[in-house]
Amino acid sequence: MASAEDIKQRIETAIPGAHADVEDYTGGGDHFRATVTAQAFEGLGRIEQHRLVYAVFGSEIGGAIHALALKTQLPLKIPTTN
């Protein structure tokens, strides 16, 4: 059984520079919802971004982790002018 904090740590360790907000939405340690913000998503389509996060957990997805609902996004860029 994993905690939301475990899931967060693993995502942030595996994807350099990533920030993850993770919620255990049933409290049972097997259904999670995560919003992952990472520069590493740049240039990737949505499918590829989600695959990158799923890959952190391999076969645990669908096994010990029943559900990992995902939202992936790039860090907000503040427009700058020179």
């Binding site: 499918i47 989600h50 695959r51 997805i61 669908g62 559900a67 990992l68 995902l70 939202k71």
Partner: peptide
């Protein structure tokens, strides 16, 4: 299916032979 699509979760929606995504992407 997951070996083929390289996508670990169910559901999976395909349009014109291509994986669109699972519930999260379809929702977005």
């Amino acid at each position: 299916l997951s070996a083929l699509s390289q996508w670990p979760t169910i559901p999976q929606l395909f349009l014109d032979g291509e994986l669109v995504g699972g519930c999260d992407i379809v929702t977005e």
